[in-house]
Write a protein that binds this DNA or RNA. Structure first.
Lengths: 197, 197, 197, 197
DNA sequence: GATGAATGAGAATTCATTCAT
DNA sequence: TATGAATGAATTCTCATTCAT
């Protein structure tokens, strides 16, 4: 009788452990051994759940993408500009803990920037978020909430980039919570005014 | 008499070759051998000019920082908002060629995100650019060019992040030249309106 | 369950193999590869037992020192000159096999002659042996076994040097067993007479 | 017209420089570059005077052997035991400076302990010194200076070993001048008594 | 003769992956 | 299933030697 093991749970455990290890040692310097140790399993056991390091990374990547998608694309459209930016503001509230992973993900993704497949998926994520903004903009134009002069499509994509920039700087430069909230506030105020007039 | 060699020129050649190699193979997978091959020199010759791979990377890093600083901090302050954004717009005009290196730099920097020293320098660069914007904002407020309601300090730093976000997306997602110009235009328009009112 | 391995036994095996390899190729020309081959393990396996070549050498060194100490310092003092020299004579009986390693050790130690720590330990070994002789001399003087005119302290240290010289020549110059025994005999006779009168 | 260079003088200069370098860096860690620097010539110039590192070492070795031979084998036989040991005592007077080279030579020679040719020459040197002592012993027996019971041949060779041991310990363990003279004195006294009776 | 830049074979070490237990 | 010992390809770096100037 084989031991009954929740394969998915174990995979999740290993992913969690590997993230911890990445934080400790840096992504590229982290070895399978260290991940296994962090997960309190043997090196060989790791391979029962992930057939290679590559596979682990792509699993982490998928999770990351999924999370971003969930956080930045709302299930429904917003009726007012304030609602939209309330949502965006919330999405921007990234905890200290989470923000630490941002450079890690960059380091991890770095080695995949040559992979067409990876980049296509990554690009699609941001294009989709941009699209979501665009659709909201269109609706808000109809609702007379924002200026008719703006180009929803371009601006949607620009907005994503700019928001991403803010998030990245938060993570990369360890901008502290209070300064960061001010920055988010100011950014949103700027966006709002910019979109109205 | 031995061959007369321009040491600095050779170092530049090797840096150029290594960037090419990074583009080809990805930063982390590139070996000294490949760099040497790209530079059409022997492995040992590489070490005559850079005492280690680490040193090469830090040389490239320094160059990169220097370039960013030169591009994004003007020698003098601007008298009008239009002038300021004309300057920013020019800085944002990144060629196809250059933009390809953006992911490369991220991959390269990735392994240094744990280095306090590196991050301090990197952060300083963006803080300095932010400062430059802040000082311009203060002047423009005095000149009645922009709204007195804005906080120059926070907004300066936010602006950098947002602009960086746009640049990064350009590089990461190979946004093509025409779409990118539109994005830059829209972003600048948004900024201008946001700052005036 | 993984293979059960006696880690200490394996370390001993590798040390043995490395000594064989040193004999074959000379200490400095012996590579980790050759040691691994001699031990019939893979290069990587070597590093499971010794974290570096340096560590291997220091392990061998320790063993060597320990052995010399055990061989040349008796657990108790001797009551008569004959007993003392019987002991010394036995210590001097070095097998053909063992004697081959003497030059090896010198080659190995050679690179450590700059290391203060190493030399201090090495010197201490011989000083301790010298001390042991000295203490025996003092006792033998009290027992009227040897002349009161000798200086136990200096002579103890001299004796070590001289005995070491004999051993070294045995090892370096492959002096054969029969000639060597005669030499040891003559040396002991000389010492005895020299000490009595 | 080629520059007139005293080839032999230059070779001597390089040997001197290499010895200095060996003292500084240890024999095995010394590179041709360092030797060249010490000799204030270019690396390539070194090869004009010694076709390889190996050749340099064998030149040094030869010199060393020659010196030892000159120091330890007198041009004529001694008529009394006192004269013999006066001579030996003088040979044993090794300056601080010289003694520093002893470990260096061992390190250097170490890599040649596998070379049959080298070892044969090295052995011959000590055998010759042993022979010289032997012949002196025979003469001294005839002169009734020393006991008829001793075996001149074995004892000659033993004496060399023992003397060599004293010299080696002086060099290896940096025994200071004053202790060393006492040791030499004691050793000679021991020898004399041992040989007479 | 003299120079020192260029070369590349060779060494130590790491680590993802395999596999016997 | 779980383990961790074993493996060896791959990488960085060194240094004796060559050779164009």
């Amino acid at each position: 009788m084989p031991k009954i093991v929740d394969k998915k749970a174990m995979r999740r455990e290993i992913i969690k452990a590997s993230l911890k290890a990445f934080l400790k040692y840096g992504f590229h310097k982290t070895t399978i051994n260290q991940i296994a140790q962090e997960a309190k399993i043997a090196k060989g056991t790791f391979y029962l759940y992930f057939s290679s390091k590559e596979i682990l990374i792509s699993a982490i990547t998928s999770l990351h993408f999924k999370k971003l998608r969930d956080e930045f694309i709302a299930k429904e459209y917003f009726q007012t500009l304030d609602e939209l930016f309330l949502y965006i503001g919330n999405a921007l509230l990234i905890s200290e803990e989470e923000s630490k992973f941002i450079p890690i993900f960059f380091e991890a993704f770095g080695s995949q920037f040559s992979s067409k497949l990876f980049m296509a998926e990554y690009k699609k994520l941001f294009d989709d978020i941009g699209c979501f903004y665009e659709e909201n903009f269109e609706l808000l134009i109809q609702n007379n909430q924002i200026s008719k002069k703006i180009n929803p499509d371009t601006l949607g994509r620009v907005l994503v980039s700019m928001i991403d920039g803010i998030v990245l700087h938060r993570g990369f430069f360890r901008i502290d919570e209070t300064q960061y909230s001010k920055m988010v506030e100011d950014a949103i105020a700027l966006f709002k005014v910019g979109l109205c007039k």
